[in-house]
Amino acid sequence: MPPRERTQHLIFAALTLAAVLTVAPIVLVVGYIAWLGLPAIRWEFLSAMPREGMRAGGIWPAIVGTLYLTLGTAVVAVPLGVAAAVYLSEYAPDNAFTRAIRLAIINLAGIPSVVYGLFGLGLFVLFLRLSTSIAAGSLTLAIMTLPVIISTSEVALRAVPQSFRLVSFSLGGTRWQTIWRVVLPQALPGILTGVILGLERAAGETAPILFTAAAFFLPRLPDSALDPTMALPYHLFVISTQVPGMPIHLQYGTALVLLVFVLSMNLLATVIRSRARARRQW
């Protein structure tokens, strides 16, 4: 074998190893948590209030809290994010201000989650007096999720061929009719994928809700958007670092529930994307 081919073999082997070593821990982590967490998963664990200082009972309020926060985030971030994407793809002129918008989006995507927490504390909790609540937490998470939704939706919108728009215009459609009846439906799978990936991130985040929404322990369900709430990621943080004598299977059980919650969103996004790809007509 000539030396340069031997080098290639060696390097390809190294690269394959890098790829394997990158994904192996992922499988390992998910498998490990599933293995140790599954024994905790019973109907009571999922549906009951925590008892005995959270060392027994279930995690129902944390599950509900995470659902509320995710929904709240969606209610704010989805319309705003998709509309912003529509603006960028269908309306925005190519000028300095549009570039500023793009720069702002890139920066929003890069701001550390804990800085979002500070911002949410400053604006929503203290300045707007929403107190530590689902509303304040959802708004904070929504702004954090916005750049993901905007950029993925914009890619999806731009992928709709220009000819579709031209046909609609030529049939007398207004710009908005064209967007609503032609462009958005075509881009829907791509937008949905982006939305779900964005919400997935929001559901798993702890730092932004630390000062804006999360309650350590609340033995009831929140009954308004102005109530604080328990949430799965924060609950996992609490029971793994703050509660003494916590049965280890409850910690892994909570981690598993959070993981399933987040990864099923991930799976949904993957399925939507691959089905859309298979069906695409252009």
Partner: peptide
């Protein structure tokens, strides 16, 4: 505080004590 809060629910069912550390 959590243990108190839980026990108090039984004593005064109309009152919920929400507990946070930090």
């Amino acid at each position: 505080a959590l243990a108190w809060a839980e026990a108090y629910e039984a004593v005064a069912p109309g009152v919920t004590v929400s507990v946070t550390g930090g």
